[in-house]
């Protein structure tokens, strides 16, 4: 979660706000530490290290995240797969000069993908082949945003906004009763805004092709990889979704990106408001309330 986090709290006294914010931040850090795949002592690292060797005992929180990931996998017909992080071995988005992986490298990584092959229960998880990996990166940050919001709300704060690296969760409207205005970043201009989503209470999350990518021969290859092909998606530049919880908004946005041309129908089926930026830069709005919810 090496990204910018911010929190706005309104309509309460300084002490309450400080205490709530501190507790929320501590919880965000806890989740980050617990599920980071970069940390030696994280749950993720423990599970991945034991791949092919043994099952690892998990707690109720981790089990509930696995349940959630399992439901995401089912909803996305396998396109959302928390074992697909191994594709990073084939796709190096930091390498300069950039290079495309060979078909063999992609095939080798794809052999290690497969959520249905993971042996898991409420008490334990076992990755059946050495080299397999779980990656909670696609859900842990949004989960942390929802928990932080719940901590703030439980402190009696009625107006708050939590933004964890672009995943935004609101508690109530702004202190004056007006909705929070969440700007949707222009996928091709880091300083620009393509639209504004109004949020009274709930969450907005965006998935885009601009977070990590390489360009080879004038073509962009982004970090959002379809686990079934091992190839980056390219139908949308970004998908922004409004949903009651950040974790739902984030999953819908990611799945929409992975759905390609089916994304609009998928989002309509979820009955959420969304804004898609197509590969040619045009906008698509989804949701029966889109005209009120989305203000250019």
């Amino acid at each position: 979660m090496a990204s910018v986090h911010e929190m706005h709290v309104a309509g309460t006294d300084r002490d309450t706000a400080d205490r709530a914010a501190r507790a929320a931040i501590a919880d965000v850090k806890r989740i980050e530490a617990k599920y980071s795949r970069y940390r030696d002592d994280s749950v993720t690292t423990a599970i991945n290290r034991a791949a092919g060797a043994r099952a690892v005992a998990i707690d109720a929180e981790t089990a509930s995240l696995l349940h959630y990931a399992d439901r995401c996998h089912a909803l996305a017909d396998g396109r959302f797969d928390i074992t697909s992080g191994v594709l990073r071995r084939a796709w190096d988005f930091k390498r300069r000069p950039p290079r495309l992986p060979s078909a063999g490298e992609i095939a080798a990584a794809r052999d290690l993908i497969g959520w249905p092959r993971v042996d898991w229960s409420d008490e334990r998880v076992f990755l059946p082949h050495a080299g397999m990996e779980l990656d909670f990166g696609g859900i842990a940050k949004e989960y942390a945003a929802d928990r932080a919001a719940a901590i703030v709300r439980d402190a009696g704060i009625a107006h708050a906004l939590v933004n964890l690296g672009g995943d935004v969760r609101a508690i109530g409207p702004r202190a004056d009763g007006s909705p929070w205005r969440v700007g949707i970043r222009d996928p091709r201009n880091a300083e620009g805004i393509v639209a504004t989503m109004l949020v009274d209470d709930g969450a907005v999350a965006t998935s885009g092709d601009y977070e990590r990518y390489i360009e080879v021969d004038g073509r962009r290859y982004c970090h959002l990889l379809d686990p079934r092909t091992g190839m980056p998606v390219d139908h949308w530049r970004s998908a922004s979704v409004a949903a009651p919880l950040a974790i739902l908004a984030g999953s819908y946005a990611t799945i929409a990106m992975l759905q390609g041309e089916c994304a609009e129908r998928f989002l309509a089926e979820q009955k959420v408001d969304a804004l898609l930026v197509k590969a040619d830069g045009s906008l698509r709005r989804i949701g029966h309330a889109a005209s009120e919810q989305l203000v250019r």
Binding site: D27, D70, A74, I247
Partner: peptide
């Protein structure tokens, strides 16, 4: 499946007040 995902999200600890 949509309902199942929402249910799984709501079952996450610390999400509901």
């Amino acid at each position: 499946r949509s309902a199942a995902l929402v249910a799984a999200a709501l079952a996450l600890p610390g999400i509901l007040p």
